[in-house]
């Protein structure tokens, strides 16, 4: 080969070896999500991408939809099911944004979307936000979703959590409430009884931060999403 001297070969070796060594380290970080999405069938993948575009246009975090997609893939859900779940998550994010406005963090928005999907009424989210003006509603939302997943009807759980925020409950109080309800349920109490008992035990933290919510908790019959 013309001009292919040992010196030139050495040069290319010096250039290529580091490139080869670096490429497997840097490539997966960027290629990871496309490779995971490629496990979806073409139709599902297209629908997910459309939803993510729509989310971005509405100022909602498309990464939340991507995360839900990846979760479904890793859990072995079929493509159609993943699309269904992501679509519902998108709708919940939009509804949470409408209920809470833009003055919340992405974590709070995601937690609120999760609570809505669990059946928590939208008005309860607004009540929480109003009651805890100035403080994060993340922990109340997390506990609210947890209570519903343990079998407490969404309306009962919402009423209890909203009531606690009115009474000035702190994040640690919500965490304690969740642990107490969990313990009672494991001991054989029904979820409703456990929540009722633990809520009554809460002494309240006095008037300073407590006030009547601006948006009241709606009556039960007006919440079609609740699971009765």
């Amino acid at each position: 080969m013309t001009g292919w001297t040992p010196r030139r070969a050495h040069f290319w070796r010096l250039l290529l070896v580091p490139l080869l060594l670096v490429s497997p380290v840097t490539a997966p970080a960027e290629a990871q999500q496309p490779s995971l999405l490629s496990r979806l069938d073409a139709s599902s993948r297209y629908q997910i991408e459309v939803l993510m575009d729509s989310a971005a246009r509405l100022g909602l975090p498309p990464e939340a939809l991507m995360s839900k997609t990846l979760e479904g893939i890793s859990k072995g859900a079929p493509g159609s099911r993943i699309v269904q779940v992501v679509r519902r998550h998108f709708a919940s994010l939009r509804e949470a944004r409408a209920a809470l406005g833009v003055d919340i963090t992405l974590d709070e928005l995601s937690a609120a979307a999760g609570a809505l999907q669990a059946g928590v009424p939208r008005t309860s989210l607004a009540a929480l936000h109003t009651n805890r003006k100035g403080s994060s509603i993340l922990m109340p939302l997390v506990v609210l979703s947890d209570l519903v997943s343990r079998g407490v009807p969404p309306d009962d759980a919402s009423s209890a959590i909203v009531s606690l925020t009115q009474r000035g409950a702190l994040d640690s109080d919500f965490a304690g409430l969740r642990r107490g309800v969990e313990t009672d349920i494991l001991s054989g109490a029904s979820p409703v009884t456990a929540l009722d008992r633990r809520t009554r035990e809460f002494p309240g933290r006095g008037a300073p931060g407590a006030r009547i919510p601006v948006v009241p908790t709606p009556p039960r019959q007006e919440t079609p999403s609740s699971t009765q």
């Binding site: 839900k68 979760e71 479904g72 519902r88 937690a111 999760g114 999907q117 947890d146 519903v148 997943s149």
Partner: peptide, 30 residues
């Protein structure tokens, strides 16, 4: 989520959880 011996994905003990939409629960970790 955690799983043992390729079993079902579950929330770790002690964490709050919520439905994941895929017939299971997911732990919420702050």
């Amino acid at each position: 989520n955690v799983r043992l011996d390729n079993g079902k994905w579950r929330p770790p003990p002690g964490l709050p959880a919520m439905r994941d939409g895929f017939n299971g629960d997911v732990g919420i970790w702050v």
